[in-house]
Design a protein around this nucleic acid. Structure first.
Length: 564
RNA sequence: GCGCCCGUAGCUCAGUGGAUUAGAGCGGUUGACUACGAAUCAACAGGCCGCAGGUUCAAGUCCUGCCGGGCGCGCCA
C-alpha cells in the first residue's frame, strides 16, 4: 500500500511477461523457472525511469543473443496508449537492457500519495505480521549505561521501528542479568563504600566495582536507611545491599534509556527464570533427548551435532549451571511465547556464543533459523581529534547520560546509527556537538524546520493544500524537482530493504540525501513566488519532503523540529 | 593456529551482481544573502575500490588464496 513504485514495477513486469510470451522467448507461457524479473531504478535519466536486465539473464538459458531477446520482448509488449497506466515508451539499450520511460504522472502520483498517506507513507505489510522478538542492550545491572549500550539501544530501538513499519509484529525485550555472583559483588561493593562513608577503615578489594556510582548508591542508602542499617545483622545487611543496589542500578538504567527515548515492551528477569526451575528443566529435557553426556564430573551438551567445533558444558563439576544453560533456557522461553524469530543484538565479544546457543535450541528440536544474532561492533570516541580513552576496570567509561548531556539525544542517535552495524564506529563528540553545517543531524532537521517555516509564510498568505486533487503538478519540471520526486518514490523500498538487511544506517543516509536535495532546490528556486499554480505545486512538493523527513526521522528515533 | 567482522578520496564512511563517469560528509581552495531561515547553496581539487586469481554477458559487490587491522576461541558472564 502507498507505494507507487510497486504499482510501476507490477505494470512493467506484466508488460515483460507479455513480451516474453508473444515474443516467443519462453516456450511455455508464464514459465520463468527460477527467475524473478528484476526492475531497477536507472542511474541516469537518459536510461529512462526503470530498466530490466532480464534479456541478459535469459541469454544463456535460451541460447540467443541478449539484444535479440530484448528486441523480441520490447516489440511484443503491447504498450499502446491507453493500455498501460504509466509506461509510455521502451527502448533496448547497451548490451540488452530494456529501458522504460514513464509518463511523468507517476511522479505526480507519488506526491499525492505521500501527502495523503502522511505518517503512513513508507509503511507496508511485507512482513506479513511475522512475530519477532528483538532483544538488545541487556547490560549487566552492575554499572550505569555506557556508550556501547547506547549504540545497542539506538540500533535496537530503530530496528524495532523499521521492522514494525514493514509489517512485522515486534516485541522488544531487555534481559536483566540479576542472577549470579555479580549481584553479590555489586552488593558487597556498595556495602563497603557505605562502611567507608560511615568512617570505618575498610580496604576496598580489587574485585569490587570501582566506579564512583557505587559510592553514590551507598550514599543514597545511608541517607534513606541509615537507622535500619545500624540495626541489621551483618548477613541481613549484605542481603539488603544486594537488593538495594540492584534495584537502584536498574532504575538508573531505565531512566537513562528513557532519556534516550528507548523503551522496552518486556523486562525479563534472569533470576525469576532460574528460581522458577526453567534451567534445570531444560537440562532435563536435553538429557531426555539424548543430547547430554557426563564427563570429568560435568554435563556436556552435544553442540558438535549442530556445527559447533566442540561440545559445551551445561553443568559444571561443582554443580553450578553455566551461562549457556541459562541462555538456552531463556531462549526456549522466548520461543514458547510464540515468536517465530528471535533477533538478538550482541557485542562482538559474544560472537563465540552464537553457535552454542543456537545449537542448544536445535538440540531441543527448534530450527536453527529461529535465532538470528546481530553482532554490533564497538565504537571509539573522538574529541578534538583525539581518541577518548575508556577503561572499564577503572570505571572510566563514558556513560549514556554523559553522552546525552554532551551532544543531546538526537545527535547521539544519529551518530550511533549512521554506520553499518558490523562496522566499527568512530564517534566524533566535537562534531556531534557542533550546531553547524558539518553536523548531519542538524542538516536534516534544518531541512524539516525550513519547510515548516515556508508553511508558516504560506499560511500568512492563506495558501493551503486542502484540495489535493485540484492541484496542477504538471509545472514541476526542474531537474531538482524531479530528482526529489524520484527520491520520495523510493522511500517505501528503502524502508523494506533496511528492515530486510537490518540496516538502520541506510535510512540515516536516505534522510541526509533527501535533505540535501531539498536544500539544493531551495537555494535555486523559490517555493513561494509570483505564479500561484507553481507556488501551490512547490508547496505540495515541500509538504511531501517534510512528511518523508518526519517519517524517516521517526524511524530513527530522532525528532523533527518545526523550528531550531 | 582456528573462527567472525572490516580494508573504497588526506580523514570518517555510503554503495540491493548491472550501463564509457565508483558516491557523500569532514578537511582544502574559490564563490553566493536588498526575496520563503546562510544551521544553506554552487564550483574546483582529491581514487590501480588492500593484493592475486576465479565464477559471470556483467564484480567495489559473489568464490578461493594471500597481506593488513579489530574481536573472539574457559567447567567466567
Amino acid at each position: 500500500m502507498y507505494n507507487v513504485v510497486d504499482d510501476v514495477r507490477c505494470e512493467i513486469r506484466s508488460a515483460i511477461i507479455v513480451g516474453l510470451k508473444r515474443g516467443g522467448i519462453l516456450p511455455i507461457p508464464g514459465d520463468l523457472p527460477g527467475i524473478d524479473i528484476p526492475v531497477e531504478y536507472t542511474r541516469e535519466r537518459a536510461h529512462g525511469d526503470f530498466a530490466t536486465p532480464i534479456a541478459l539473464m535469459l541469454a544463456g538459458k535460451v541460447k540467443r543473443k541478449p539484444r535479440d531477446i530484448a528486441e523480441a520482448i520490447a516489440d511484443n509488449m503491447e504498450i499502446a496508449k491507453g493500455k498501460t497506466r504509466y509506461i509510455q515508451r521502451v527502448e533496448v539499450a547497451g548490451p540488452g537492457f530494456i529501458n522504460f520511460f514513464l509518463d511523468r504522472k507517476w511522479l505526480e502520483d507519488v506526491l499525492r500519495v505521500v501527502i495523503s498517506a502522511g505518517p503512513q507513507y513508507g509503511r507496508s505489510g511485507v512482513g506479513c505480521g511475522k512475530r519477532i522478538q528483538l532483544e538488545f542492550v541487556s547490560a549487566n545491572p552492575t554499572g550505569p549505561m555506557n556508550i556501547v549500550n547506547a549504540r545497542a539501544a539506538a540500533v535496537g530501538a530503530s530496528l524495532a521501528n523499521i521492522l514494525k513499519a514493514s509489517g512485522h509484529d515486534v516485541s522488544t525485550e531487555y534481559y536483566v542479568n540479576d542472577a549470579g555472583n555479580q549481584i553479590n559483588v555489586l552488593g558487597t561493593s556498595v556495602e563497603l563504600r557505605y562502611l567507608e562513608l560511615k568512617g570505618e577503615d575498610v580496604t576496598f578489594p580489587e574485585w569490587g566495582y570501582q566506579g564512583s556510582y557505587i559510592v553514590d548508591i551507598a550514599r543514597l542508602a545511608m541517607d534513606k536507611y541509615d537507622k535500619k542499617l545500624k540495626a541489621m545483622a551483618a548477613e541481613e545487611r549484605t542481603r539488603f545491599f544486594c537488593d538495594f543496589a540492584l534495584t537502584q542500578m536498574l532504575a538508573d538504567q531505565k531512566a537513562s534509556l528513557s532519556r534516550f527515548g528507548v523503551e522496552f515492551d518486556v523486562w525479563f528477569s534472569e533470576r525469576k527464570l532460574v528460581e522458577g526451575g526453567a534451567v534445570s528443566r531444560v537440562i532435563e529435557l536435553l538429557k531426555q533427548r539424548g543430547m547430554v553426556y557426563d564427563e570429568d564430573g560435568a554435563s556436556w551438551l552435544r553442540t558438535t551435532e549442530f556445527g559447533d567445533e566442540k561440545d559445551r558444558v551445561l553443568v559444571k563439576s561443582d554443580g553450578d549451571y553455566t551461562y549457556l544453560a541459562g541462555d538456552i533456557a531463556y531462549h526456549k522461553n522466548k520461543l514458547e511465547r510464540g515468536f517465530e524469530l528471535l533477533i538478538n543484538i550482541w557485542g562482538p565479544d559474544h560472537h563465540g556464543h552464537v553457535v552454542p546457543t543456537r545449537a542448544g535450541l536445535q538440540a531441543l528440536g527448534y530450527p536453527g533459523g529461529s535465532l538470528e544474532v546481530l553482532l554490533l561492533q564497538f565504537l571509539s570516541l573522538m574529541s578534538e581529534g583525539e581518541r577518548v580513552k575508556m577503561s572499564k576496570r577503572a570505571g572510566e567509561f563514558i556513560t549514556m547520560d554523559d553522552l546525552i548531556d554532551e551532544v543531546g539525544s538526537d545527535a547521539a542517535r544519529y551518530f550511533l546509527l549512521m554506520r553499518n552495524i558490523e562496522s566499527h564506529l568512530e564517534f566524533d563528540l566535537s562534531l556531534a556537538k557542533e550546531h553547524s553545517q558539518a553536523n548531519p543531524v542538524y542538516y536534516i532537521q534544518y531541512a524539516h524546520a525550513r519547510i515548516s517555516s515556508i508553511f508558516r509564510q504560506a499560511e500568512e498568505r492563506n495558501m493551503n493544500l486542502d484540495d489535493l486533487d485540484e492541484l496542477d503538478l504538471s509545472n514541476l519540471t526542474e531537474d531538482a524537482e524531479l530528482d526529489i520526486m524520484r527520491k520520495l518514490a523510493s522511500y517505501p523500498d528503502e524502508v523494506v530493504i533496511s528492515a530486510f538487511e537490518r540496516a538502520p544506517n541506510r535510512l540515516a543516509g536516505y534522510a541526509l540525501d533527501l535533505a540535501g536535495l531539498f536544500h539544493s532546490l531551495y537555494n535555486s528556486h523559490r517555493v513561494i513566488g509570483e505564479d500561484s499554480d507553481l507556488t501551490m505545486a512547490r508547496l505540495a512538493l515541500s509538504r511531501a519532503v517534510q512528511t518523508v523527513l518526519a517519517n524517516v526521522l521517526g524511524l530513527l528515533g530522532i525528532s523533527a523540529p518545526h523550528e531550531m
